[in-house]
Design a protein around this nucleic acid. Structure first.
Lengths: 342, 342
DNA sequence: GATTAGCACTCTCGTCCATAGAGTGCTAAA
DNA sequence: TTTAGCACTCTATGGACGAGAGTGCTAATC
C-alpha cells in the first residue's frame, strides 16, 4: 500500500465525503470552496489527477468532476474513515426498539432489522444463528390433533425450530414426553452439528430402545438440522428505505438488487462466509454477484455467550457514509448481543 | 346498477383486457382491429363515449385512448370477469412449493408468499392466524440458561409463539413442568381470546396455588396474547416482482406502496378486517390509504378445520389481470388450508 | 334509426439544435 | 511549487417541430 502524503489524503477524504453527501461528481473548485485545504483549485486539480492515476478516483466523462473508485473507497475505509458512534438519540431509539423485555426473539430481530434500515437508508439483513452451529437446550415433542405431532428444538439462545410430523398410531403422548426428556437430558449443551458424530447417540439409543420408531423420526429431523446446507433463516428489511438513495431511482437497479438478495444462497455466501467478528466491509465489485456490483455491504456478527452467532448487515449504494454505517452496525450488534444474552 | 346492453359489455371487456395486457390507453381502432365485435371503430367510439359518461372509462387527455376507471374495474370484476384457474403447471408448482412434508410452518407460509408474488407479479402478504383467535393446543415452559425461561404457546394449527422471561430464583424446572401440564390440560381447545373470560382460570388457580408466582407470570403473557390489539404476524414478499409492472417504474410510487404496507396496522385493517371467506377484491380508491390509492388488493382467507384462520393477499397495480389473480389467490388458499389441515 | 366513412382538431412524444454551465488540462507567470 | 488564465470538452436544459394516435362531429349509407 503506497503511503499517500497528507495533502493527498485530505483531498481524498474531501472527494469521498463530498460525493457521499451530494451524490455528484466533485470538482476541484468545490473542494477548494467547501474544504479548507489552504490551496487553490488548480493545486487540488493536480492532486486529483494524481489520485486518478493511482486508481482511487474516476471520472464519468472528461468534463465532469471525479468520484471515488472501488479502490478509492477501500482506501478511504481502511485508512481514512473513522467508525462514528451513533447519536444519543439514535442509541436511545435502538435500545427502545430491541430492548423490550419479554418479546419474541423473532420480533427483536425484526425490530433490529427495521431500525438498521431506517437509520442507514440501506437494505438490512438479519441472519439468525444457524441451526447447525447452535447449542441445543431442549427437545420437545408435542402431540397435535389428528395424528400429528410437533418437534420443537430450542437452542440456548432461545431460538425455536419446529417441525410438524405425522404421528404413528402406536406412539402415545407419554412416549413423546419420555423421549423428549431423555433427548433433552442427553443433548443439552451439544451443538446441533455435533449430535450425530457424538458418543451420546449410543447412550440415547440404548436408553430409548423401546421407543425406537419415534426416536428414529426425531433423530432424522435432528440430523437434517445438523447438515451444513440447512441454512440459517434470514430477514430482509427496508426495501422502501433504500429507494431514497439517488442510485436507486432507476427501478431496474433496485429490482436487480432485491432479486439477488432474495436468494438464500447469496445471503449465506455474503454474510455467513465472513469469519471476521468485527465490522466487515465489502465494497462494490469485491463481491461476486453481478446484480449488486455497485453496492457495498457492511456486516458484523452478534454473539451469544461470547460465541459468534448470527450476523446483521446492510447493503446500500457504494456511496454510503461508511463511518456512520459501520458505527451503526457495530452498535446494533453489541445491543443485540446484550439483549440476547440477558 | 344499470344493466348495460351486450355490446357495451363487450366493449367494456375489450377495453379492460386490452389495457391490462398492454398498459396503454386503448383507442377505438385498436378494439375494432383486435376484438371481433363486428362493428366499425366509429361505433365503438360512440359506445366508449357512452361508457365514459357512465363513469366506467376515463381519458388521460383528449386525444388519447381510454382506460377503465375504478368504477369500470369494479363493474368488470363484478359482472364480467371470470375467476380463472391456474394452469396445471402452476398448480404443480404450488403443490411442490408448499406441500412439502415436515417443513416448518413458517417456511410453508413464506414459500406460499413468494410463489404468490412470483405468479402474479404483485406484492404478496401472508398473515398468520391471529393469536387471539387461535385455538390453543399446548402451553410449555422451558428452562433456559442463566435464570431465564421460555414460554411456548402452541396453537392447534401448529403455530408457535414464544416469549423469553426472567426466571425467579425459587422456580424449579419441576414447577415449570407441572404448570405446563396443568395449563395444557385445562386450556387445550380454548381460543387464546377466551381464556381470560372463561371459568377455567378459577380451576387452574386453585390447582396451581402453590406455584402462584410462576402462574401469574404465565397468565400475564397469555392474557397479553388474547387482547385484540396483539396483531397477527405477517410477511411481505415480492418487492422485486412488483417492480416489473410498468406503473412501478416510478420509484417514488413503489416506495410509497412499500412504506404503507410495512405498517402492521395497515395490513391489519386491509386484510384482517375483511370478513368475507371468499376471494375479496378492493379496487383503487376503495381503500383509504393515500399511498396505495392506485393499487388493487385481492385477498382470501385460508382456513383450519373449517374456521377462517389467516389471510393471504396480493397488492398490485389496478391494472391487474383480475380473473387470473383471483384464481391464483383462491387456489393458493385452498392448498394452504389443505396443507395446514393435513 | 343505427352505422360508418371522412375529416378537422388536439394532445403527446421523440428528435434536433442551440446554449449555458461545469469542469478539466495545459501553459505561463508568480 | 503554486496559481491564474484560458481554450476545450462534455452534459443538461429548453424550445421548436413534425409524426402519430385518437377523438368528436358531420354527412352519407344501410
Amino acid at each position: 500500500m503506497t503511503r499517500l502524503d497528507e495533502r493527498k489524503r485530505q483531498v481524498m477524504r474531501a472527494v469521498v465525503e463530498s460525493y457521499v453527501a451530494n451524490a455528484q461528481p466533485v470538482g476541484s473548485r468545490t473542494i477548494a470552496r467547501d474544504y479548507d485545504l489552504g490551496v487553490s483549485s488548480a493545486t487540488i486539480r493536480n492532486e486529483m489527477a494524481d489520485l486518478e492515476e493511482l486508481g482511487y478516483l474516476e471520472q464519468p466523462h472528461t468534463s465532469a468532476g471525479r468520484m471515488p473508485s472501488d479502490a478509492g473507497y477501500r482506501f478511504y475505509v481502511d485508512e481514512i474513515a473513522r467508525v462514528s458512534s451513533p447519536t444519543h438519540l439514535q442509541l436511545e431509539r435502538m435500545r427502545r426498539a430491541i430492548g423490550q423485555q419479554a418479546s419474541e426473539i423473532d420480533e427483536v430481530l425484526q425490530a433490529a432489522g427495521r431500525l438498521l434500515s431506517e437509520i442507514t437508508d440501506c437494505l438490512s439483513v438479519v441472519v439468525e444463528p444457524s441451526p447447525s452451529g447452535a447449542v441445543l437446550n431442549t427437545v420437545e415433542i408435542v402431540p397435535l390433533e389428528s395424528d400429528r405431532m410437533m418437534l420443537l428444538v430450542i437452542t440456548r439462545e432461545g431460538l425455536v425450530h419446529n417441525r410438524m410430523l405425522d404421528c404413528p398410531d402406536d406412539v402415545s403422548s407419554e412416549q413423546m414426553n419420555h423421549v423428549s426428556h431423555v433427548l433433552t437430558r442427553y443433548l443439552r449443551g451439544y451443538t446441533l452439528g455435533d449430535i450425530l458424530s457424538s458418543e451420546v447417540v449410543r447412550g440415547i439409543r440404548s436408553e430409548l430402545d423401546h421407543c425406537r420408531k419415534l426416536l428414529d423420526m426425531v433423530m432424522h429431523i435432528l440430523s437434517s438440522y445438523s447438515s451444513e446446507d440447512v441454512q440459517a433463516r434470514y430477514r430482509l428489511e427496508g426495501a422502501a428505505n433504500i429507494m431514497k438513495q439517488p442510485e436507486f431511482q432507476d427501478v431496474r437497479r433496485a429490482q436487480k438488487v432485491l432479486r439477488v438478495l432474495s436468494q438464500q444462497s447469496v445471503i449465506n455466501d455474503l454474510l455467513r462466509s465472513v469469519r471476521s467478528e468485527d465490522v466487515f466491509v465489502l465494497i462494490g465489485s469485491e463481491n461476486r454477484y453481478e446484480g449488486i456490483r455497485d453496492c457495498s455491504i457492511v456486516t458484523s456478527a452478534y454473539s451469544i455467550r461470547g460465541q459468534s452467532a448470527g450476523r446483521i448487515g446492510v447493503l446500500g449504494p457504494r456511496r454510503m457514509n461508511y463511518g456512520r454505517v459501520m458505527g451503526t452496525v457495530k452498535t446494533l450488534t453489541s445491543l443485540l448481543s446484550e439483549v440476547l444474552n440477558r
